[in-house]
């Protein structure tokens, strides 16, 4: 379970204060599929950085499985990301000259898993992400956009994180591919993975079971999709 309690984030740029998040509280239970929506400048990116343990809030608490992330130092944040969070990015962010297998096993290098276990976990994650077996040893730049995003999803899954954080995962894909990727995320959610999706497209948000909208750093509404 992840929980945000009264979190604010204030940026100081050139002597000016920008309030990106304004006393936000939020609770996401294990196994939920949540979409966070909002226009640009609404604070949803800041929300994602905090949820992803990429940045600390100015005030407030952020609990992952009961542990407060807000006060952690750089290396502790890195450890938190390694063990609890899987990222899927809009731009995929795969290593370009590396094979699919190498990309998916990359998080396990930092986790220090033995070689044999790495390949088993990566194979399982790739199967769950729905990438065709024949592509496992291809270089990532030989893949289509949809295939690349499946590799990225497998990479997010491989450490069996508490939370998968997808930041505009379909932003670089055509609508048909977007649909299949969202179906895959839905399937992963059905298997019990907690997924938080950040998007500005309402039809993409419709795949989630709960939609939270943000505007001007405040929660606007929080409703269940049927």
């Amino acid at each position: 379970m992840i929980e945000i309690k009264d979190v604010s984030k204030i940026y100081h740029t050139g002597g000016e204060e920008t309030v990106a998040l304004d006393h936000v509280s939020l609770k996401i239970n294990d196994g939920e599929f949540v979409a966070i929506v909002g226009p640009s400048g609404s604070g949803k990116s800041t929300m994602m950085h905090i949820l992803g343990a990429l940045d600390n809030p100015t005030t407030g608490q952020y609990l992952i499985d009961g542990q407060d992330v807000a006060k952690l130092k750089d290396d502790q944040l890195a450890k938190m990301r390694k063990n609890k969070i899987g990222f899927v990015f809009q731009a995929f962010n795969l290593l370009p000259r590396a094979t699919v297998m190498r990309n998916v096993t990359l998080p396990l290098i930092y986790a220090g898993a033995p070689q044999k276990e790495r390949e088993q976990k990566a194979t399982a994650a790739l199967a769950a992400a729905g990438l065709d077996k024949s592509k496992y040893n291809n270089h990532s730049n030989q893949l289509s956009g949809g295939q690349m995003q499946r590799v990225a999803i497998a990479r997010a899954l491989v450490n069996d994180p508490s939370l998968i954080l997808a930041d505009e995962p379909t932003g670089n894909l055509d609508s048909k591919t977007s649909h299949t990727i969202m179906t895959t995320l839905q399937a992963l959610n059905k298997k019990g993975h907690t997924i938080v999706l950040i998007t500005h497209e309402l039809d993409i948000a419709a795949y989630a079971s709960r939609v939270i909208s943000i505007r001007d750093g405040k929660l606007e509404h929080d409703r269940k999709n049927k």
Partner: peptide
């Protein structure tokens, strides 16, 4: 990316 997936 490496930092996001847990590199210190």
């Amino acid at each position: 990316l490496r930092k996001a997936i847990g590199a210190t």
